[in-house]
């Protein structure tokens, strides 16, 4: 505990004083959830990019994206990964955060699925059914509602139930819901028992829209511009590396997750890259706003950090 106090004091001092960039290694805390989508930072760290940039990166464990925002506000995290909806809502409620990087973008690792042996074969069959979702009023729900409406399904007949993402495969298997959002590794884990009803839930928002962003607290970032830029350089290099080399992603995920190696190799990985995909951000926000999942539109200028 004493060490964490010292570390806390250390980077509290760092975050208050202007950063000269000449110190040996700047301690930076990156808070994230242990899912495959957040592997880019780990890949970059393993490749030594952060070290070379003079940054001592600590990757901290979180469980929920909303709590990551709290940690960013409290200053215990310098950077954190949050879903696009969470980022938008925080900004709408006036929390001083901004987006700096792409955590991951969709590449088929999240799907709306149903039992292969069940009665639901097409989107139209979803009418009147119970759908299990890992989060409510978010981009996933907005995406599938848009596609359901397009297929002529009256969405008022559908019941959306909130179920914690790891429990969704079990809920679908045991008939708690008739269709569910299944994220990897649940897709691999189900084998051929599940069939995708909506294989690309985020299609309405563009080609492989960005689902999750790295955020910072705005005033901290403005005071430490140089550190943030160095971090982003290293981070984006790691993201590009992750995009090209799946084996490194597998290795990174294995270091923080319990997913067995064989599953990881079969899994559909999210997409990594340094492209902020602002167009997809706009489209996602618009789609969520149209369903009143967001109170208002969040503009790109409001949301993205400009050094």
């Amino acid at each position: 505990m004493k060490t964490s106090w010292l570390a806390g004091i250390a980077f509290a001092l760092l975050s208050v004083s202007p950063n000269s960039g000449a110190s040996a290694a700047d301690a930076v805390v990156f808070g994230t959830v242990p899912i495959a989508g957040t592997a880019a930072a780990r890949v970059g760290k393993d490749a030594g990019y952060f070290e070379k940039a003079g940054i001592g990166l600590e990757i901290a464990n979180a469980v929920q994206f909303a709590n990551i925002v709290a940690d960013i506000m409290a200053g215990t995290y310098n950077f954190g990964t949050v879903s696009v909806g969470t980022a938008a809502q925080a900004i709408i409620e006036g929390l001083p955060i901004k987006i700096v990087a792409n955590t991951y973008h969709s590449a088929g690792e999240q799907r709306l699925m149903a039992l292969s042996s069940g009665p639901i074969k097409t989107i139209a069959d979803l009418k009147g059914k119970r759908i299990g979702l890992g989060g409510l009023n978010n981009n996933f729900q907005a995406g599938i509602i848009a596609q359901m409406k397009e297929a002529g399904v009256d969405t008022s007949t559908v019941t959306f139930t909130l179920i914690s993402p790891p429990d969704l495969p079990a809920s679908l298997r045991n008939g708690v819901v008739e269709a569910a959002q299944i994220n990897e590794p649940g897709i691999v884990g189900a084998g051929d028992k599940f069939k995708a009803v909506i294989p690309e839930p985020f299609k309405p928002f563009g080609e492989n829209p960005c689902n999750n962003y790295v955020i910072v607290r705005t005033n901290w970032a403005d005071r430490n511009k140089e550190l943030v830029k160095r971090f982003l350089t290293a981070y984006n290099r790691g993201a590009e590396l992750a995009a090209t080399d799946k084996s490194l992603v597998v290795k990174a995920v294995m270091s923080f997750s319990e997913i067995p190696k064989e599953t990881l190799e079969k899994m559909t990985m999210p997409g990594f890259g340094s492209d902020l995909r602002k167009e997809s951000f706009k489209a996602t926000v618009q789609g969520m706003y149209d369903l009143r999942f967001l109170k208002r539109i969040v503009t790109v200028d409001e949301a993205f950090w400009a050094p």
Partner: peptide
């Protein structure tokens, strides 16, 4: 908090995650 769509716990967590403090 984790398996519902309504209820007191859900309301609180929903408000917290949507930052409606």
């Amino acid at each position: 908090m984790v398996a519902s769509g309504s209820g007191l716990g859900f309301f609180i967590v929903d408000a917290q995650t949507s930052f409606r403090l």
